[in-house]
Structure formats: structure tokens, C-alpha cells
């Protein structure tokens, strides 16, 4: 039994877990931001012409 298990383990690609942790962390940040109602504020800003953003105002 033991050799078979180790062979199976050798054939598996080593999965990198760090990206999943990073993505989960930022997903939580995104959810926290959404919970505070931030997207409404972002939308409010994004639908107006930002004169200073385009170098006019």
C-alpha cells in the first residue's frame, strides 16, 4: 500500500497555495468594502466627468 500512495503523490503536480490565500484575502477586502456601501460612492464618482482627472479643472 505504501509505495502505491507515494507513487500517486509523485505524479500529482505541486499545487501552489499562496495565490489562493492572496485571492481570498482580497476577496474579503472587496466584500468588506461592499458592506460599507463603497460601490455606490464609486459609481457616483465614475458617472461624473472628472475635470481634474482629465487635466482641465
Amino acid at each position: 500500500m505504501t509505495p502505491r500512495t507515494s507513487t500517486r503523490k509523485q505524479n500529482k503536480w505541486p499545487i501552489r497555495k499562496a495565490p489562493l490565500a492572496v485571492i481570498s484575502f482580497f476577496l474579503l477586502l472587496w466584500l468588506a468594502g461592499n458592506a460599507t456601501g463603497e460601490p455606490a460612492r464609486v459609481l457616483e464618482q465614475a458617472i461624473r466627468v472628472c475635470l481634474s482627472c482629465i487635466g482641465i479643472g
Binding site: 482580497f26 476577496l27 474579503l28 472587496w30 468594502g33 460599507t36 463603497e38 460601490p39 464609486v42
Partner: peptide, 10 residues
């Protein structure tokens, strides 16, 4: 800016 940083972080 958590939702923005979260979105680009993902």
C-alpha cells in the same frame, strides 16, 4: 477604497 483594492487585488 477597500472594494477597489479588493477588486484589483483579486
Amino acid at each position: 477604497g477597500l472594494s477597489v483594492v479588493g477588486a484589483i487585488g483579486v
